[in-house]
Design a protein around this nucleic acid. Structure first.
Lengths: 161, 161
DNA sequence: GTTTAATTACTCGGATAGACACTGTCCGAGTCAGCCCGG
DNA sequence: CCGGGCTGACTCGGACAGTGTCTATCCGAGTAATTAAAC
């Protein structure tokens, strides 16, 4: 049960987008260069974010990606779901159906106590992720490292083509 | 981020072991037959549980697997960790280290705010799993379906070689 | 009848192929900026 | 000098290989029950 590596990239890239002056689009290549990541693969992750409505993409020169909503309305769960696809971690294949006394017309995903417990745990995880927004992350970072916004902005400015 | 299918099998098999008369070992073949699972592969999962100290295994005739502890002391997290290997779901590869101003002698797993948030969510998940034991599951099942212990026991008895 | 020792069948345990998803890369369709030309 | 059309380069977007992990299976080492014989 290992999460895709792209989740980390997507989260950091979204956070960096938080610090760019609004109105300016950021290309996948620049976002990738910031952390020395493979640009084409990061582009793939950003596409997923765009499909999920977290980013907006504009092609052509001066194009790139932008946050589609203010950071207050983008939760960590949104990003994780966009990359990982929203499937539940615990796979309940309803083995009870194959067991003795198993019925074909019963939804064991909701009836099985084990499945319920695993689902409850996963819900706690989701609840925590949904309760943290990009704005929260940004605020904490700016509180602990006040120079981050400016240095990030200037780095991207120096890398402007 | 999909959990191994063996987790579900392991959990259900452990629960079934809860209902067997103590002192009797259960072979992987019989546990697998209960849900019509591939016996050799379930055996692999049971081996992992044995390595983790959740089950004890005895070879030879009349051998098989037994719970190593009372169900009150076996949590869902124990089983999940035994199968999945205890690695964290969120992979923090510390991309900050590769970024501008990244230092080599800093542990970004504990410093990065994103990593902290993801870790906190995962901790909530683990806490929930650790708070539920096999005894809890068994009690709930017996409350909702009182006939389960006896029917399970008799099924395994009829399948005794 | 009891003890002892070899036999036998049975179980786990790890080593071995196959399938799927993730990782990484590439090139093409579409689009906007800039440039050139004409008025 | 100003407006319009064209060129061109740049960007995303999806299609294409490589790799690692999960899934599934098999056979061998070890063990305990069984059987048979000897005392």
């Amino acid at each position: 049960m290992r999460m895709s590596e792209g989740v980390e990239w997507a989260l950091h890239s979204c956070l960096n987008l938080t610090w760019t002056e609004s109105g300016e689009a950021m290309t996948a290549a620049r976002l990738a260069a910031f952390y020395d990541l493979p640009a084409a693969y990061l582009n793939k992750q950003l596409q997923a974010l765009a499909r999920a409505g977290i980013l907006t993409s504009t092609p052509g020169p001066r194009g790139g990606f932008r946050l589609a909503r203010p950071p207050e309305r983008i939760s960590l769960l949104d990003v994780v779901t966009a990359i990982e696809g929203g499937v539940e971690a615990f796979r309940c294949d309803e083995v009870l159906r194959k067991g003795p006394g198993g019925r074909e017309d019963v939804d064991y995903r909701t009836l099985c106590v084990i499945s319920q417990s695993m689902r409850r745990a996963e819900l706690a995880w989701r609840r925590e992720l949904a309760g943290t927004t990009l704005a929260d992350i940004r605020a904490t970072v700016e509180e602990r490292h006040p120079g981050t916004p400016e240095s990030t902005r200037s780095w991207f400015a120096s890398r402007r083509p």
